[in-house]
Design a binder for these strands. Structure first.
Length: 414
RNA sequence: GCCCGGAUGGGGUAGCGGCUAUCCUCUGGGACUGUGGAUCCCAGGAGGCGGGUUCAAAUCCCGCUCCGGGCCCCA
């Protein structure tokens, strides 16, 4: 019996890997242009770290295991908690604000389906230390620019969990249950909950509020429903608009995790079926949960795999030069290859002991641009024969000029 | 955890109780001892696993595993 790949995991072949690297490159470039610096945390943590902050939802689907010393560990289901843990443990004295970005794999034991896997990648940022609307602005702007740079067709929705929390205050203990129902858009469940609690008047308000989706006028409507300071959201929305960031106000966004405190946002894309959410984030307070000082932060995570599926651009493939390798002249072939590689040319030498015909055939199969033939006559004459595999043309080039010659030919056309 | 649909060489398939399991592609070699993509020849390679029914199972039945899609949840 062959050993299969575990369920919900994937192998990435070169073609796909090149595309993923291209997406990664673009995201990194943008994060760094905003002054964010990469951080990395362990693949597994004490399961306590995730249990403490995120309620049953995520905990049920965690990969938890015991190590040989009976420590209870978990493969990370997300990256925000580890990063805030790292911040509390070793960065709390660094100058504020801190700008971190990360790219890493996460694990959740869920039923796999389109654009959902048990091992998946998140690319995200955390801006730690500011609770200004400007922090929300920066982070949302960055998320927007990232998705834009991948030429993805998406919609940005911005909400605020504060006003829902305010409204739900009378529910006391039950309010987080209500938040979850709102997040699920479970109207029936909500009605049931409210009638059980005998709060029909509140029910109407909540339902009206969560249905508010649209432009700025939505804020005015919300003001009539709930007593709340909308200044933060208004300033944020205005500034985003003036910077050309198209968005909709959506007070129905509740987000599954209950550590969010203020502005929350999500991005939805077309073409992924049920998994249309490609980015989610907002402002939160986690530091004190992990034993640090109360510190506001805001961040988001992009569903890297989902975004890769939507990315239609091409990765830039490096051209390949094949060095034809003859028996007895292996030294010459490998020497030439080394010279080309030093000049940043990808050079491939036959290692199958094949004849010339087969080597050219292979060169064709791997889509090489050029073949360099150095046989006995070439070595004697100090001239290498360069064959263009696309056109079939051949040229004899002086051995010492070969690197510059090929570099010139392979220069990317701009 | 629930619902639907699947699983035949590396990839794509045909057969749907009975010959040595079909065809395409692929991989390696050769025709062709130094010039690729074409052609021809040779070689390689398969019914997910376990059980049942039957004289006989890839084919029918059951269970499991895995894959795809949906619910839930999320990225």
């Amino acid at each position: 019996m062959r050993i299969e790949r575990p369920r919900g995991t994937r192998d990435f072949l070169p073609e796909e890997m090149e595309k993923r690297r291209e997406v990664e490159r673009r995201l990194r470039k943008l994060a760094e242009s905003f002054g964010y610096r990469e951080v990395s945390t362990p693949t597994f943590e004490h399961s306590e770290l995730f249990k403490r902050k995120s309620g049953e939802g995520i905990v049920e689907e965690m990969y938890v295991f015991e190590d040989k010393s009976k420590r209870e560990l978990a493969l990370r289901p997300e990256l925000t908690a580890p990063i805030i843990r790292m911040f509390v443990n070793e960065c709390s004295r660094m100058p504020r604000p801190l700008r971190f970005y990360y790219f890493g794999n996460c694990f959740r034991y869920e039923r796999p389906q389109k654009a959902r896997y048990r091992e998946f990648w998140q690319f995200g940022v955390e801006l730690i230390g500011s609770e200004s609307y400007l922090a929300d602005l920066e982070v949302i702007l960055l998320a927007y620019k990232m998705l834009e740079s991948l030429e993805i067709d998406f919609e940005l929705h911005i909400g605020h969990v504060g006003l829902l929390r305010n409204l739900l205050k009378p529910l006391g203990e039950e309010s987080s249950k209500a938040m979850r129902l709102i997040d699920k858009k479970d109207e029936e469940g909500l009605r049931k909950l409210f009638s059980e609690l005998g709060m029909r008047d509140l029910e109407e308000k909540v339902l009206r509020l969560t249905e508010l989706v649209g432009g700025k006028e939505v804020i005015e409507e919300a003001k009539e429903i709930v007593d709340f300071d909308f200044n933060h959201v208004e300033k944020l929305s205005d500034l985003l608009e003036s910077l050309g960031v198209k968005h909709r106000i959506n007070f129905g966004i509740a987000r599954g995790l209950d550590y969010y405190t203020g502005v929350v946002f999500e991005c939805y894309a077309k073409g992924l079926g049920a998994q249309k959410q490609i980015c989610g984030g907002g402002s939160y307070e986690l530091a004190q949960i992990f034993g640090g000082e109360r510190t506001p932060a805001t961040g988001f995570a992009i569903g890297f795999d989902r975004v890769c599926e939507l990315f239609k651009g091409d990765s830039v493939k490096k051209p390949v030069v094949v060095i034809v390798n003859f028996p007895g002249l292996e030294k010459n072939a490998f020497e030439l290859a080394m010279r080309l590689r030093e000049s940043d040319i990808t050079a491939v030498v036959d290692v199958m002991g094949r004849n010339l015909k087969k080597q050219l055939s292979y060169a064709n199969d791997i889509n090489a641009e050029y073949a360099v033939i150095i046989g006995e006559s070439e070595v004697k004459g100090g001239v290498f024969r360069v064959k263009n595999l696309k056109t079939g043309e051949q040229l004899d080039v002086e051995a010492e000029n070969i690197t510059t010659f090929l570099s010139e030919l392979l220069k990317p056309k701009t």
